[in-house]
């Protein structure tokens, strides 16, 4: 039980580092040159692109939207995923394996198909809205197309399977006898969670949350499809700026800022976990 936190957090760190950094290292350099449009760049090494980012509320808002949707998706994934993962991990029957297999299959279905499925279900005259309006719960159709809730739902569609699998493996490492021991020595169901399961699951849950958050920060498809040209996260913006506006240097700057934000948030989390470990708030 003396594994170092750094080692535990290394895989998600390396994952995000290569995901964002290695493939775009060429772009990083580009971000320090003036953008002359149509893929052309200036001669001098300047910080103009960064200044523009930090002074333009549109860009700042996109960064905020990216962090907000990713954090919300990670949070809701954990909140929804934990009970499911707990239930599967504590199942005695072979149904547990069937459910896990189902989740794995669902997770690897391409996100495009899944998101179009979502759009069909949630469309204004789709089955959900029609039936909800018919029984009078809704007077207007509820749409997930082109708003932040839609993007969060889309991201979760993509992360929930991963979340359940991750949490399942975390919960499985907590022996059931610990729950029995807590219960027989006077803890009710809530206290068993509060004093045994949550503290023991916390390190794994935190790593899982970071992984999911990182996945969301880089997610393009669900954000682009459900954002519908109205919600801009940084990955969506990068695509737009580079492919449609042909502003390579500015796109590179956006990518660089996304990368730095992800690294900063991961490092901050590692630092906080270290502090918690030092205070014996979590156990490794």
């Amino acid at each position: 039980m003396t594994a170092r936190w750094g080692l535990v957090l290394l895989p998600p760190f390396i994952f995000s580092f290569f995901l964002v950094a290695a493939s775009q290292s060429v772009f990083l350099e580009l971000s320090f040159f003036e953008d002359l449009g149509l893929g052309r760049k200036g001669e001098d090494f300047v910080l103009d692109n960064y200044t523009r980012f930090l002074t333009d509320s549109f860009y700042l808002h996109a960064l905020w939207t990216t962090i907000k949707t990713s954090a919300l998706a990670a949070l809701f994934t954990l909140v929804l995923g934990f009970p499911v993962a707990y239930l599967i991990a504590r199942m005695r029957s072979q149904w547990a394996m069937v459910l896990i297999a189902g989740i794995v299959v669902a997770t690897f279905v391409t996100i495009v198909i899944k998101v179009y499925g979502l759009i069909v279900i949630f469309s204004a005259n789709g089955i959900l809205n029609r039936s909800l309006m018919e029984i009078g719960i809704l007077s207007e159709p509820f749409t997930i197309f082109g708003n932040v809730s839609g993007v969060v739902i889309g991201l979760m569609h993509f992360t929930l399977g991963f979340g359940v699998l991750l949490l399942y493996s975390v919960i499985q490492t907590i022996p059931r006898s610990l729950e029995d021991a807590a219960a027989i020595h006077g803890a009710n169901r809530w206290r068993v969670y509060r004093r045994v399961i949550f503290p023991l699951a916390l390190p794994g849950v935190t790593v899982g949350a970071l992984m999911i958050f990182n996945m969301c920060m880089g997610a393009f498809t669900s954000a682009a499809l459900l954002g519908g040209g109205r919600v801009f996260t940084l990955p969506v913006l990068v695509q737009r700026v580079v492919m449609m506006e042909l502003k390579f240097s500015m796109g590179a700057t956006l990518a660089a800022i996304l990368l730095v934000s992800v690294i900063a948030i991961n490092l901050l989390s590692i630092f906080m976990l270290r502090r918690m470990k030092a205070a014996h708030l979590v156990v490794v």
Partner: peptide, 17 residues
């Protein structure tokens, strides 16, 4: 939790944290 029983488990089941 309401039976007021004590129990020793096969793997001890001490709380590691």
């Amino acid at each position: 939790q309401h039976r007021e029983i004590g129990m020793v488990f096969q793997d001890y089941a001490l709380f590691p944290h």
